[in-house]
């Protein structure tokens, strides 16, 4: 049993590294999505989804790194609040844009339409 725990302990930094790295990559993908996707809603989708997952992965990695301490408790709490607030914020922004009458861009993407770049959600 203690052997198993020992192995876990050896693995811990690697798992943490993988979590941190993948979290970072996911956030980067989200950022490129914000820049490249065609309209407001798709961009929000890219930002919202990746932010939640990416930051949670980063936090998971940090928790693994810090081990069973008060710090990881705090990090877990941060994760919990992010889990609550991040989707809510995305929802609020999308909702506001929808109420303000911003129509999503439908149909297939043929060419970049720079004029329609970013809707002003107000």
């Amino acid at each position: 049993m203690s052997d198993f725990l020992h192995i876990l302990d050896i693995l811990r930094p690697y798992v943490a590294g993988i979590a941190l790295l993948s979290g970072g990559v996911i956030v980067l993908i989200g950022a490129s999505g914000v820049l490249r996707l065609p309209d407001f809603y798709t961009r929000l989708h890219a930002a919202g989804v990746t932010d939640t997952l990416g930051t949670l992965l980063v936090l998971l990695g940090l928790i693994l790194l810090s081990g069973f301490t008060l710090l990881s408790g705090k990090l877990a709490l941060v994760g919990l609040f992010l889990l609550l607030t991040s989707p809510a914020a995305t929802h609020a922004v999308a909702n506001a844009a929808h109420k303000a009458g911003l129509k999503p861009r439908l149909g297939t993407v043929k060419s970049q339409a720079p004029g329609e770049a970013s809707g002003d959600p107000s």
Binding site: F81, L84, T85, A88, H91, A92, N95, K99
Partner: peptide
């Protein structure tokens, strides 16, 4: 109902 989500979340968060 459109911002009921915000109300629920904020009710959770404000005391915290």
């Amino acid at each position: 109902a459109h911002h009921v989500v915000l109300r629920v979340i904020s009710k959770l968060m404000i005391p915290v």
